[in-house]
């Protein structure tokens, strides 16, 4: 069979894998942003107990590989009586990992708001909450956009690890096909194309967004 035929035949499978990668990434990214924002707010407002718990979570999450987190969810959790299917494991694992990265992204943005801005806000009598709402958060979010964007790309790439728990996303699809038909050139080519279709446009959009928030929202 020619390469072209190989590729054509594998298209439906790659399409499925592509859609799954996209879905898992999307849910993972949204979940990570929510978890990250919550952790970051707990830290910013120095919420007792919950703030500490969030800090411990961030440390654990950042200092363990996704691979290990996935094995833990997939193989160790059922031992304690929690059984999640592979896709749920993947999503939970991705959010567990991404939440801490996003939290650090937000933290960096909030910390980046200058001390003199904060003092000026205090000097006009703003409360802690008002200071956060009108000064620190609007500026901090803008500052955190580049880090959040980098994290999104990172998380999408991390979905390739899902193959170890047999989720049929892009990488898993390619590795399966290679295992069955021994045509690695064609399938690896398809794999690269699949990720490129997701990542290249996204990274262009994010770059434009970064420029816009830098110049746009604060006037010209």
């Amino acid at each position: 069979m020619s390469s072209w035929q190989i590729i054509q035949q594998s298209l439906p499978l790659f399409e499925k894998g592509f859609v799954l990668t996209l879905w898992l990434s999307l849910i993972g990214i949204i979940g990570s942003i929510i978890v990250g924002l919550i952790c970051s707010l707990l830290k910013y407002f120095q919420v007792p107990v919950l703030g500490k718990i969030a800090a411990i979570y961030v440390e654990i999450s950042r200092n363990t590989p996704l691979l290990v987190q996935l094995f833990f969810l997939y193989y160790a959790f059922p031992v304690f009586g929690f059984k999640l299917n592979a896709e749920m494991c993947g999503i939970v694992g991705l959010i567990f990992l991404g939440g801490s990265y996003m939290a650090e992204g937000f933290n960096g943005g909030f910390d980046g708001v200058s001390k003199t801005q904060v003092e000026t806000g205090k000097a006009i009598g703003l409360s802690r909450l008002q200071l956060a709402r009108y000064v620190v958060f609007p500026q901090g979010f803008t500052l955190s956009v580049p880090a959040l964007a980098a994290n999104m790309i990172f998380l999408i790439k991390e979905t390739s690890i899902f193959t170890v728990i047999a989720i049929p996303e892009l990488t898993n699809t390619a590795l399966d096909l290679i295992g069955m038909y021994y045509r690695s050139n064609e399938y690896l080519f398809m794999l690269v194309v699949g990720y490129a279709i997701i990542l290249i446009p996204l990274s262009i959009i994010l770059t434009i967004l970064e420029k816009r928030v830098r110049y746009g929202s604060f006037g010209n």
Partner: peptide
């Protein structure tokens, strides 16, 4: 916080809120 609204302060670094 209550008293500060009765005391205006202006700094060397004007620090308008850029947003």
């Amino acid at each position: 916080q209550k008293i500060r609204q009765k005391i205006g302060m202006v700094f060397q670094s004007y620090d308008l809120f850029p947003n």
